[in-house]
């Protein structure tokens, strides 16, 4: 179990992590979701005691990280693929980490085997691909057979086979009763693996909910209707006890009704329809809506502001 209590990190004026309070529970995969720059990695570094919080507190199974006896046997983490000395072999990289926590060298062979790196165990890490580096990082996380595992963007740089492997791994670790905390900036990835969801944007907590609840609340299904006789259609729908709201493009959106029923209703009143389509809001859209206000770097949409003529300021001044 990982407990965050008012965790805050400020770099000068800039707030990277803003008063985060949530708990990561054992037995399930908890997804940590947020756009790039939302503060996910900073939060994870603070959980590991690498960055000092400006305020607040993190507990690992009730203990502060720096008070843990042999921390790797309690919590294992994959932070980034290339945190390895390029001149050191995979075996020695894991061996030095194992020794510092009193883990048997036999265990190094086990985890190398588990991530499929046995064949290159004695090779220097500089020859490793991004995917192999990621596997080595995961091996390091598994080294102490910890009850808590934390992965920062684990699918980055992996091929489809590797992605499938890590999804299965995370689920099986959770099934064994371990706490699994995994970050991503992709909702679609989380929808496949996570049971619980913590969403942050600009360092603030936006949602802390079960995946099922999030899907139920956010995957709105509705029917999109367009008609040149918009007013008439609204009346007819109203009489039929159906509430429609205005969508974009002069279309109407009807929640929770069958397209067939609306079509028949319109036909009965001889209304012309230009569109009648069932829609499903994707989780990705729901996520984007949730974080829209907190995205740090927007791609500009719509008409760009016309560039100011050179010398305009001078003329005005």
């Amino acid at each position: 179990m990982i407990e965050l209590e008012g965790l805050t990190k400020r770099y000068g004026e800039k707030v990277a992590v803003d008063d985060l309070t949530f708990t990561v529970r054992p037995g399930i995969v908890t997804g940590f979701l947020g756009p790039n720059g939302a503060g996910k990695s900073t939060t994870m570094r603070m959980i590991l005691g690498l960055d000092h919080p400006t305020a607040g507190d993190v507990r690992i199974d009730g203990t502060r990280y720096d008070r843990l006896e042999d921390p790797l046997t309690c919590i294992g983490a994959l932070l980034e693929a290339k945190g390895v000395h390029p001149g050191r072999s995979a075996y020695n990289h894991l061996l030095c980490l194992a020794q510092s926590n009193g883990i048997q060298p036999r265990r190094v062979h086990e985890v190398l085997d588990a991530v499929g790196l046995t064949a290159v165990a004695r090779k220097k890490a500089k020859g490793f691909s991004l995917g192999m580096g990621q596997r080595l990082g995961i091996a390091a996380a598994l080294l102490g057979d910890p009850r808590i595992l934390m992965f920062d963007e684990p699918v980055n740089g992996l091929d489809p086979e590797g992605i499938h492997w890590i999804r299965t791994l995370m689920k099986s670790l959770a099934t064994q009763g371990r706490t699994v905390f995994v970050s991503s900036h992709l909702m679609s990835e989380m929808a496949l693996t996570a049971d619980h969801l913590v969403v942050i944007g600009q360092g603030r907590l936006l949602a802390d909910t079960s995946m099922a609840e999030f899907i139920e609340r956010n995957s709105r299904s509705y029917v999109r209707v367009r008609s040149p006789q918009r007013e008439l259609l609204l009346d007819v729908l109203h009489q039929g006890g159906i509430t429609a709201v205005a969508g974009g493009d002069g279309a109407l959106e009807v929640d929770g009704s069958k397209a067939e029923y609306i079509g028949e209703l319109a036909a009965r009143h001889q209304l012309v329809l230009h569109e009648l389509s069932p829609q499903q809001a994707s989780l990705e859209e729901a996520f984007m809506q949730l974080t829209a206000e907190s995205v740090e770097y927007h791609a500009h949409t719509g008409t760009p502001v016309p560039p100011q003529q050179w010398g305009d300021g001078w003329k005005r001044g």
């Binding site: 570094r45 590991l48 005691g49 690498l50 990280y65 720096d66 843990l68 921390p71 790797l72 983490a77 932070l79 980034e80 290339k82 945190g83 390895v84 000395h85 390029p86 980490l97 510092s100 926590n101 390091a140």
Partner: peptide, 18 residues
């Protein structure tokens, strides 16, 4: 400085927080 230039410092200090 190898610890810093390679990023190993994070793994090292996660393993030995003291």
């Amino acid at each position: 400085s190898n610890e810093y230039s390679t990023g190993m410092i994070r793994a090292s200090l996660a393993a030995v927080p003291k």
